[in-house]
């Protein structure tokens, strides 16, 4: 059985010549199915860059990244779209909901791109919304929801396609304590149900809830310990 994530000596370099910045200086990492990994690091340590590469939103400069045993760099645009749609649920720090579109429609969006038909799509989207405790807010638009509620809609959107891998880039970075707890509770439940989760944070108490903690400094992994 392949590991879900297999990152081999990945480097990411931005810019050229004098403005060159090495965000990742050779990161290798494997994550097994069902793991719950927290990645910590100060800003500029390359953790967001790593997350974007893991989510197929960006490509590494050098190195190899296997997702479920498939080399992502060999995929074309169409196949990449399919991978993002089916295999990965991505939660952003800035929520990234589509404006002036109801919570339900936002959650339905990945299903629509997956080709799921109307009624089934609505049923599954409603189910995902009730999983994050927002069934009663389905008709609300993002600007009618609090930050915590918006992030939970974003989480619902990430899980609605039942992806094997959930990636969250500082999902609680913009949230108050209560909303943080709400969102983390959702992640705990997901982890308990066997999903693989990789989460970025710089709050130690958020990281404590994970099973494994990785610290990044200046584009290198300096610590990798199992918590549970």
């Amino acid at each position: 059985m392949h590991p879900v994530l297999d990152v081999q000596r990945v480097k990411k370099i931005y810019g050229q010549g004098e403005t060159e910045v090495q965000a990742l200086r050779g990161v290798s990492l494997t994550v097994e199915r069902g793991d719950y990994v927290a990645i910590m690091g100060s800003s500029g340590s390359g953790k967001s860059t790593l997350m974007n590469i893991l989510g197929c939103l960006d490509i590494p400069t050098t190195g190899k990244y296997l997702l479920d045993g498939v080399d992502v760099s060999r995929l074309n645009d169409r196949q990449l779209a399919l991978v993002r749609n089916r295999r990965i649920g991505f939660v952003f720090q800035a929520f990234n909901l589509i404006a002036r579109t109801s919570a339900l429609a936002n959650v339905e969006l990945p299903l629509a791109y997956a080709g799921v038909k109307g009624a089934e799509r609505r049923r599954r989207a409603n189910l995902a919304l009730s999983m994050v405790g927002l069934a009663d807010r389905a008709g609300h638009e993002p600007n009618q929801l609090s930050g915590g509620q918006q992030q939970r809609v974003a989480v619902a959107r990430a899980l609605v396609t039942a992806p094997a891998l959930v990636l969250a880039d500082e999902p609680t970075g913009n949230l108050d304590t209560q909303s943080t707890n709400d969102v983390l509770a959702v992640f705990d439940r997901l982890s308990a149900s066997g999903r693989t989760i990789v989460l970025i944070t710089h709050e130690p108490d958020v990281a404590e809830r994970a099973k494994r903690l990785i610290r990044l400094v200046d584009g290198h992994i300096v610590q990798d310990e199992r918590l549970k």
Partner: peptide, 16 residues
Amino acid sequence: TREIGIRKALGAPKRT
């Protein structure tokens, strides 16, 4: 452009 980025991140193919 941002909205297009979100849609791509959710798995929308370029053609769609």
